[in-house]
């Protein structure tokens, strides 16, 4: 397989170790509007990639294609050796291995916090109830809210809800975590607690793709930063390269607007 990225982005995309996710020439249309144009991206195991860019640039669409919440119209997406196809079994398999955290949390309001976390292990992995609950409590402890287990999502603050959402995804022991603007709907004082949970996760070696506007997080945690605009990947590089020496005009303009 030829590495299309290598010509465009030099060594910034050079992936060390084995490839976890690969997008090759991915296009996505909403009606006649082209949301993604020729997206090529390789992500290594245990790598943390932060995707930034102006709104409407296709960041969310890109990661939503990876677990088939959106269907790509051209190109190939390969997750841990399994290529996304029409085959429902394939899609289910990739979704089981891929956790996702949403901007709006999307916790299940009719289930308690613990039930939110244990639902997928019980229903998808057929884990016995007791075992699932032990796992659930362990994960809630990891995101530092074990005491909220019996409450309902509506009784929690935004930051707590988002941490439950992270625990819920982790309960499936995914190989990849996708974060779709996980802190954008939070009050400022709650952003830190969610980012801390994400940092812990990165330290433990989780492969992560994070769409975010938190530049501090990108600088501190990311292995690589991907900048997108108008449905295309404009520039890819290490945080250091990215924040000190961006090459593309579009990148410089964006950074000057937000920093």
């Amino acid at each position: 397989m030829t590495d299309i990225n290598s010509e465009v982005f030099a060594d910034a995309t050079a992936v060390q170790g084995d490839v976890m996710i690969e997008l090759i020439g991915v296009d996505k249309f909403f009606g006649s509007f082209q949301a993604l144009t020729d997206i090529n991206l390789k992500i290594a195991r245990q790598e943390v990639v932060v995707v930034i860019g102006p709104s409407g640039s296709g960041k969310s669409t890109m990661i939503r294609c990876i677990n088939r919440l959106e269907e790509h119209d051209a190109g190939r997406i390969i997750v841990d050796g399994v290529e996304l196809s029409e085959d429902v079994k394939n899609i289910q398999e990739i979704r089981r291995e891929t956790g996702m955290v949403f901007q709006q949390f999307n916790l299940f309001p009719h289930l308690s916090v613990l039930d939110n976390v244990t639902l997928a292990p019980k229903q998808v992995r057929n884990m016995p109830k007791k075992e699932a609950e032990d796992l659930g409590m362990e994960l809630l402890t990891r995101v530092k809210i074990p005491e909220q287990a019996k409450k309902y999502p509506g009784q929690l603050s935004g930051g707590q809800q988002q941490r439950v959402a992270i625990a819920r995804s982790l309960a499936m022991t995914p190989k990849v975590m996708l974060f779709d603007e996980p802190t954008s709907a939070l009050d400022p004082e709650m952003i830190g607690e969610v980012l801390d949970s994400m940092k812990d996760l990165a330290k433990e070696g989780m492969t992560m793709i994070v769409v975010t506007h938190e530049m501090g997080f990108a600088r501190e945690v990311a292995d690589r930063v991907v900048f997108m605009a108008d449905g295309q990947i404009v520039e890819v590089g290490t945080p250091e390269h990215f924040f000190t020496n961006p090459q593309e005009e579009r990148t410089k303009l964006f950074l000057s607007q937000i920093l």
Binding site: N67, L69, T98, F102, Q123, V124, R168, S169
Partner: peptide, 18 residues
């Protein structure tokens, strides 16, 4: 029921029936 609910269920790998 907001769309995000079925998206979250899908993302967890639940079958369409579940």
């Amino acid at each position: 029921v907001p769309n995000g609910q079925s998206e979250a269920a899908k993302a967890l790998g639940l079958s369409p029936y579940k």
